[in-house]
Design a protein around this nucleic acid. Structure first.
Lengths: 201, 201
DNA sequence: ATAGTTATACCAACTGGTAGGTATAATAGT
DNA sequence: ACTATTATACCTACCAGTTGGTATAACTAT
């Protein structure tokens, strides 16, 4: 038996497959059978690890957000200057957006569209996911503002939400167009906007 | 009997109901029975007007894009100055975004996420929808650039795609948060960015 | 005009297949 | 032997789509 600390490889395979399939086809269109086949696992195992498809959805989303947070924490790099940290955050996000593995879409945006009106738990998780993301980047912006543009009247939190909107929206465009560069282009515009806010001050 | 020119009220009821339900729950989770019940029509009638659920999806999307185009054409108002037209476009979009009826989400973004990987026809329609949208606003920006910022190096088309990304992304945020103002806030940032591009020139 | 014909609009009941989920047996690790 | 895990067979509900039919409006020939 494995200990509770190291996660079951079967469960991981199921979560991986579920995430991959759901990013492509959405939650509803992805069947439990699909997931089991992709993970090379039988249904018995599936329902041994997850009490329902809904619960799997919640776990996949949770895992997605957790890995996102880990990334965000590393995004500013080792910069100490708060404004440079903000720029580094955007630059590194641009770099990441060009990686094929990162350009499969965002489970937060997808689940928000598909499940918010029918599944309150998923909606709460999406809300929290976005809030944490906005808070993370928003705090960096707030520090930069305090240091370099304290009298400017833009709202750091709003700016962070603006970044999220740009990301989510351009990922959708990237998906339809099969264009892995558009997220970067849009983030470049976002960076130029942020610059204009700080240079003006 | 009705003539072929005036659309059947039953078919309209079905399309209305389908659009409403799909904006809330997505395409896959919306069943034909749901639609029929909401439209107060029986299934027999449904399949009299639509050969499949897929075809209904295409028609709903087509109608959604058509009504969108109509709106976009009116968005600049009666302005003649090209730059003022651009600002009017954004301002009017902000106004519209506050209307509850317009804040139900965007079928283009939704179908893109749910159906692009499985349904080539829908994907093509989504692509076209976004392309036309970007082209429409992009041309306005191009005219304004030619008149006021011909030497600036931003790309009008890219800027139009940036607007779309901001819209789509903030509509998702609005949906999770039940916040009808966030689209307006984000568009205000977008307008400020556009301004910064033109004022610098 | 009107009877006969046809096309359109609509409906209730049904079908085949598939979805999520369960029951239970087999296996393997300790 | 005991427990965690995996496998198989199955159940029930519900899905898209069909069937076979009725009602009504529109056209046509006389």
């Amino acid at each position: 038996m494995r200990t509770a600390l190291e996660p079951s490889p079967t469960k991981e395979k199921l979560l991986d497959a579920a995430q991959r399939l759901m990013l492509a086809k959405g939650f509803v269109a992805t069947t439990v059978d699909d997931i089991c086949e992709a993970a090379e696992v039988t249904k018995g195992s599936f329902f041994h690890y997850f009490e329902s498809k809904d619960q799997l959805g919640r776990e996949v989303l949770k895992r997605f957000c957790a890995s996102g947070e880990k990334i965000h924490r590393a995004l500013c790099g080792s910069e100490t200057d708060p404004l440079k940290r903000v720029y580094a955050y955007i630059d590194n996000t641009i770099k990441m957006s060009k990686d094929p593995s990162m350009s499969k879409g965002c489970l937060l945006g997808l689940f928000s569209q598909e499940l918010c009106d029918t599944n309150p738990q998923i909606r709460a998780a999406c809300k929290k996911g976005f809030d944490d993301w906005a808070k993370g980047f928003g705090q960096e912006v707030a520090k930069a503002k305090a240091a370099y543009a304290s009298r400017a009247q833009f709202n750091p939190q709003e700016l962070a939400e603006h970044l999220i909107a740009v990301m989510e929206g351009s990922m959708i465009l990237g998906k339809v167009r099969h264009d892995r560069l558009i997220v970067g282009k849009n983030l470049t515009h976002f960076k130029a906007y942020v610059k204009s806010l700080f240079e003006r001050a």
